[in-house]
């Protein structure tokens, strides 16, 4: 039981990261109808900016600030220089150009920071673990990540349902025709939304820094998981991003932990062991396939 709670928390934490990634990306997809493969690069940029600042100053808060600013700036520059030209292009062109962006960003980080991964320490004030329940000891840092994620989710909820700008953005993402009727500066809105999405990705990146290695190409794996989230949740839907991210986070974590043992019960030979490990990493994709069969446009399809 305790083990189960612990794993749920781990799943929640992955879900939070995925939510930060997918919230921005689903808006970009929904509002601008542009497929952006380079979103993972903002995650990576956030992580690198954070790790470098942390190494230079020792301050985790400064690291987060650097990550947010770095990723948001990178996002806005990319939007103005590349994405803007792509809005009217076919998806194929968008895929190719943003693929080029990934190649560029990955190589650039290799030039700047080298091929060796960077490691970021957990700040001392977030180090250590606490006993959540009798017998359940959990790292404080991971709890903090969950807390930040929930705070961001609340902030986004406030932004999108309580402020004028936010409601306009959401309306635009769910029903593209609304954007023309908004009477706002669309160019600026696009740049801001893109910057916001990049900033959230950067935040996800820097928070992942102390948990995994910061290295070139780290954005791709998370990008594909983000795609799975968006496919499950439905393009353009923040609510879909929340639900999809939590589902994927929990199913992935639980799958890895429990599938192999389940599999071992059913098939007892040694051969099953190796297959089980493979299957465990496939759990979320099977989830995606199931949802596709049930609801091809995702759980919360935008009405367009």
């Amino acid at each position: 039981m305790l083990f189960f709670v612990e794993q749920s928390l781990n799943g929640l934490q992955l879900g939070i990261t995925l939510f930060l990634m997918s919230a921005g990306l689903t808006l970009v997809f929904g509002i601008m109808r542009v497929i952006n493969l380079a979103h993972g690069s903002f995650y990576m940029i956030g992580a690198y900016c954070g790790a470098t600042t942390m190494a230079a100053t020792g301050s985790f808060l400064l690291a987060i600030g650097a990550a947010l600013i770095g990723a948001a700036l990178a996002g806005m520059v990319v939007e103005v220089l590349v994405l803007r030209v792509l809005y009217r292009r076919e998806h194929l062109d968008q895929v190719l150009a943003t693929f080029g962006l990934i190649l560029f960003c990955n190589e650039l980080t290799r030039i700047i920071w080298g091929r060796q991964p960077l490691f970021m320490d957990v700040p001392p004030w977030l180090g250590g673990s606490i006993e959540l329940l009798p017998g359940l000891i959990y790292p404080i840092y991971r709890l903090a990540v969950i807390g930040v994620g929930v705070a961001v989710a609340l902030f986004l909820w406030f932004l999108f349902s309580r402020t004028r700008l936010g409601m306009q953005i959401r309306a635009g993402a769910e029903n593209r025709e609304m954007i023309g009727a908004l009477g706002v500066n669309i160019r600026l809105l696009y740049t801001l939304v893109f910057g916001l999405g990049a900033m959230l990705a950067g935040l996800a990146g820097v928070m992942a820094g102390p948990i995994m290695a910061v290295e070139s190409g780290m954005g791709e794996d998370i990008l594909i998981l983000t795609f799975v989230v968006i496919v499950i949740g439905g393009i353009g839907s923040i609510r879909g991003a929340v639900v999809g991210a939590l589902l994927v986070g929990v199913v992935d974590t639980m799958g890895r932990v429990f599938l192999p043992s389940l599999f071992r019960i059913v098939f007892s030979n040694a051969y099953a062991d190796s297959v089980a490990a493979s299957l465990a990493s496939m759990a979320i994709y099977l989830l995606m396939a199931a949802i596709l069969i049930w609801r091809p446009r995702g759980l919360f399809p935008a009405h367009s």
Partner: peptide, 12 residues
Amino acid sequence: VYFGPVLIIVVL
């Protein structure tokens, strides 16, 4: 690092 931008430009 050169090929990426070239690719973008070719596409655009």
